[in-house]
Amino acid sequence: MAQAESRNQTPRPLSPHLQIYRWTWTMAMSIFHRVTGVALYFGALVLAWFFLSIASGPEGYAGSSWFFGSWFGYLILFGFTWALMHHMLGGLRHFVWDFGKGFEAEERFLLAKLTLAGSVGLTLLIWVIVLIAR
């Protein structure tokens, strides 16, 4: 490795990184899928905390209740809902591809746009229903 580096006096061409590419819907939704996946990964801690707070009794539950009742808690839960819906629809998009369909240019862009529109729509729908039903 060290030998190879010393011999390379001229910088070798590198493959372009993200900021070089023109943004496309498919690229953006691919990134969104990964980012929401990572967010949900750490968001699972919030779910575990909620379960544990009930298991620990009324005092522990009061702590999580205060958090989820605060504006910050609402923000977290709203973001969690959107990330969940977006990652789910992104996954369903992958299922379409797994069956060998949806690879045409038009179809790919339509699926990408539907993923974002669907995730925003489903998130708002869930929150309207939950807030009305409660």
């Binding site: 909620f50 009930i54 539950y61 209740s65 009742g69 789910m88 996954g91 869930i126 039903a133 409660r134």
Partner: peptide
């Protein structure tokens, strides 16, 4: 992934019924 899609909406209903309610 299939299991998650099937379970996520029942889970949202359960959590929506629970979060913010008295202990």
């Amino acid at each position: 992934a299939v299991a998650n899609v099937l379970l996520v909406f029942p889970m949202i209903i359960i959590l929506a019924m629970t979060v913010g309610r008295p202990y």
